[in-house]
Design a protein around this nucleic acid. Structure first.
Length: 659
RNA sequence: GUCCCCGUAGCUCAGUUGGAUAGAGCGGCGGUUUCCUAAACCGCAGGUCACAGGUUCGAAUCCUGUCGGGGACGCCA
């Protein structure tokens, strides 16, 4: 409806009955809805607010508006053919050919090119709302020395889709992968590594940049767990962990101040171990992110090159990249942590409590923000505040957005409030984009957080592999043509398998909990990623079919571009065009609400209607004997393909031409 | 215990921000393929919108309460 609503409202504003009622196009547009049943009309106007303003009954207003004459001809094709009052509504019948031409024309203008390679340039539904504004988007954000588990998919893909959607509305989006790479846990890890693998400590002391050799993330986790187990019996290990972390922290601070030589060899050794562990983790992350089609650009802890990156081509850089910025970065960056503590003291918003320095953001009976722990170290609130200040300042952004699970609602409420208390009014525009938990079935049959029956989390990579493998099987079974081309079959299996997982994650509202169920995730029937891709692929293959027919019958190579919408007389074709017209509004809402599922739902409607149309035209075919009809239908096919392709890319899926 | 989120078909979810007779998918049952991809399409069955009040022309939607499920709650991040 979206591309049609504005012109419809403008036309209605010219009707004598509407002018008499003093209604503007904007007021009219706001009341346009779709009637619940098709036979009522194509578009309806609810008269409730007009009636309230005029102090009369909605039914009377509707009757009066519907009774008027049509407006004088102004040369433009008339979109509205007739009006009937139905209770408090006026139902309008639209001029299908004129409306279809409007919608298809808008899609064609905004989506140049027909190849998959052109798809990233398609921008149907683009908006200007964010023009000149920057949004910093914190998403994905795993902890290093831990694997990427299935639950990381949520933040990663919701965040990525939000990035794309906001960009479509004109925003510059700086995506930041806020790595959990700091905290006393890393001191324990270092202590554990030194204890169980003495050669690690020796190599680090000798200045080896790869003191961990070929260790995997799995070994790091096991080391950490083993150390924690032992810690229960030997409490002195706790101190060992804290000591290693303190050495690490001191070294990084010295490094930032260019006084690394003063920090001593032990600190440097810890830094080398930590940095190598981080690199091992990042290499694993990269592999999984590559499956998802996402890449991040690392901002090193001590970075000398970032200015070059930012000054050369910032617009393009941020559109094509997101950044890794570890928590560790903000510990030392510009002394922000210390400045926050100083500000809090100066403004008297902080106070001493139980040996820690805290801010009570929500009254004394709620837990406070802890700025400095009783052992003198900063806490994560402090680092998050420092990160917020840094982002606000360096990326010139009023809007910081965090794609983080709903369990952390309180944390973000406190964070934003804390920033406000420190005088940063822009914190009011920050948003916590929360999402539901990932639940696993427990032995007692109930759904619960965290772990599977076996007590272990499901690795994201395993999930993706499993989905790809399932698709390989389906290809072998159903498309032997494709299976013969091993390379392409593999590409397709990957795109479809990963797409199935991604779409499944994005299709329902982000705040719903996700019940992790292999059977459902690997069931590719119905409203699924493969179904969406299927419709996209079909639209491509029928276009090819047209080109073939056009050669034989001499219709002209791209004759469908001149297709006449008046040929499209079927109700299902009209319905399909209305759904296409709805896409820009869905995208705008999805972007504004940080809600990818709105786009996913809009695409499902388009795909379902497309599939129905496809089947119901089997007798005449989309590309049939009738040249004019075939041209017009393929023109519609092309529009469907572009809207589907555009939407799927926004959701972070990969397009394919066969499957 | 306090605060927050949620409750719509057997299951998973929509419901255009208060409007017309509450819609999809999965699962179940029954059909459809000489034809541009059946990973599809068509039909049937399935509802006291948790419950009880209230607000008004009108409530799945807003308010209050009850019940049920989940989450968070000072030095882990």
């Amino acid at each position: 409806m979206d591309i049609l609503r504005a012109p419809i409202a403008q036309e209605l504003a010219r009707w004598p009955s509407f002018r008499q009622a003093g209604l503007t196009a904007a007021e009219i547009q706001a009341q346009l809805v779709r009637p619940p049943k098709r036979d009522m009309g194509d578009v309806a106007l609810g008269c409730f607010v007009f009636a309230k303003a005029a102090g009369v009954k909605p039914n009377e207003v509707a009757a009066k508006l519907a009774a008027g004459d049509v407006p004088p001809d102004n040369g433009a094709p008339r979109l509205i053919e007739g009006a009937t009052a139905a209770g408090p509504y006026v139902n309008f019948k639209l001029n299908r050919a004129a409306c279809m031409a409007l919608v298809l024309g808008a899609i064609e203008r905004s989506c140049p090119g027909e190849n998959i390679e052109d798809a990233p340039q398609w921008n149907f539904g683009a908006g200007e709302e964010g023009k000149g504004k920057t949004l910093v988007l914190d998403f994905s954000s795993p902890n290093i020395a831990k694997p990427l588990a299935v639950h990381h998919l949520r933040s990663t893909m919701i965040g990525y889709a939000i990035k794309k959607m906001r960009e479509s509305q004109g925003w510059r989006v700086v995506g930041i992968n806020h790595l959990g790479d700091w905290g006393t846990g890393f001191g324990k890890l270092i202590a554990g590594l030194k204890k169980y693998f003495p050669e690690v400590g020796q190599r680090a002391l000798a200045g080896d940049a790869r003191p961990l050799g070929d260790m995997t993330v799995q070994v790091l986790i096991e080391t950490y767990q083993r150390f924690n187990q032992e810690l229960k019996q030997h409490e002195d290990l706790e101190d060992a962990g804290k000591r290693e972390f303190a050495l690490l922290e001191r070294h990084i601070e010295a490094l930032m101040a260019d006084r690394a030589h003063e920090a001593g060899p032990e600190g440097k050794a810890n830094f080398l171990i930590w940095e190598h562990a981080r690199n091992i983790s990042l290499a694993e992350f990269e592999r999984v992110y590559a499956h998802l089609g996402i890449s991040f650009h690392l901002w090193p802890v001590v970075d000398l090159h970032r200015k070059r990156v930012l000054t050369e081509e910032p617009e393009r850089f941020f559109r094509e990249n997101a950044l890794y910025i570890g928590e560790s970065y903000y510990v030392t960056a510009e002394d922000l942590c210390r400045r926050i503590i100083a500000d809090a003291l100066e403004l008297k918003v902080a106070e001493e409590s139980e040996g820690a320095m805290v801010i009570y953001t929500h009254g004394k009976d709620k837990p406070p923000i802890i700025l400095v722990k009783n052992d003198g170290a900063t806490a994560y609130h402090t680092r998050d505040m420092a990160a917020a200040l840094y982002r606000h300042r360096h990326f010139n952004s009023e809007t910081l957005v965090y794609v983080v699970g709903g369990e952390q609602r309180l944390h973000f409420q406190q964070l934003f409030k804390g920033l406000e208390l420190l005088g940063h009014a822009w914190a009011g525009q920050c948003a916590h984009v929360d999402f539901g938990l990932l639940l696993f079935k427990q032995p007692d049959g109930k759904w619960a957080k965290a772990s599977t029956r076996a007590g272990r989390v499901v690795m994201l990579e395993d999930l993706l592999d499993e989905a790809v493998e399932a698709v390989r099987g389906i290809i072998r079974e159903k498309n032997q043509d494709l299976a013969r081309d091993a390379q392409q079959a593999e590409r397709v299996a990957h795109a479809v398998g990963v797409g199935a997982v991604v779409f499944n994650d994005l299709k329902s509202g982000r705040r719903n909990d996700i019940k992790f169920d292999w059977d459902e995730i690997l069931n590719f029937t119905g409203e699924t990623g493969p179904y969406m891709l299927m419709q996209f692929v079909r639209m491509g293959s029928v276009t090819e079919k047209f080109h073939e027919a056009a050669r034989l019958k001499d219709w002209g190579a791209h004759a469908w571009k001149q297709g006449d919408c008046a040929q499209l007389k079927r109700d299902d074709e009209w319905e399909l065009v209305l759904l296409l017209a709805n896409f820009p509004e869905a995208l705008r809402r999805a972007s504004a609400d940080y809600e990818p599922s709105i786009v996913a739902k809009a695409l499902i409607e388009v795909a379902a209607q497309t599939s129905s149309w496809w089947t119901n035209t089997k007798d005449t075919r989309i590309v049939g004997e009738d040249a004019e009809l075939s041209k017009a239908r393929v023109r519609l096919v092309n529009a469907v393909r572009k809207v589907l392709g555009r939407g799927l890319l926004l959701l972070g899926m990969t397009l394919v031409e066969r499957m």
